[in-house]
Amino acid sequence: MDLKKQLKEGLLTQNPVLVQLLGMCSTLAITTSLFNGLGMGVAVTAILTCSNIVISLLRKVIPDKIRIAAYIVVIAGFVTIVDLLLQAYVQELAESLGVFIPLIVVNCIILGRAEAFASKNSVAASAVDGLCQGIGYTVVLVVMSVIREFLGCGTFGAGILNGGKGYVLLGSQYPASLIAQPVGGFLTLGILIALTQWLMRPAKKKEGSRDGLR
């Protein structure tokens, strides 16, 4: 178990969004404000870590033929629990994320990690993997949210900071609402992916191999 390596993979070399391109739907749809991005990221990280732990615990009990069904039941259970908890304790977030909370069930990152990692590794390693991948997902969501909220609405942290009003950085005539729409999501994501690839390039050359890709 190599914590540093797993964290680096989650954040950069195996980032679920920027490199594996998983969970695109929620990434594009909800990154319109920091509040949404952070909330979704934390919810997914919690569910991913919990489901990774449980699936890793059960990996020897679950027969191979029904593993996908079993994983989905476990994941759906956690998602519903988080959904109910959000509705009960953080109504604003539950409202603004809406249908995207139940849709975490079909978020490929979670089933992907269950199948690719948790079903083959120890409980501790799976927990760390869930956490690292979740953090990688959250960081991307937060970055995208901040960019899109600033360019699309001209605010920063609307819904959480400054007593829920956020900080207005641009006058109402400047924001390009295009960026806050799905089109802007694709544009932002594309630019971010290109930027990560560019950033990772020198590192690859130095290592002289593609070790990053297990």
Binding site: L58, V61, I62, P63, K65, I66, A69, A70, V73, V74, A76, G77, T80, I81, L84, L85, Q87, A88, Y89
Partner: peptide, 27 residues
């Protein structure tokens, strides 16, 4: 196969029931 899947479903359903009982009044 059946028993494993059934057991998982029962446990998950139980957990959901408990969560629902706690959160329903608040919601």
């Amino acid at each position: 196969l059946t028993v494993t899947l059934l057991a998982i479903c029962v446990v998950v359903a139980l957990l959901l029931g408990v969560t629902n009982a706690i959160t329903k009044p608040l919601i």
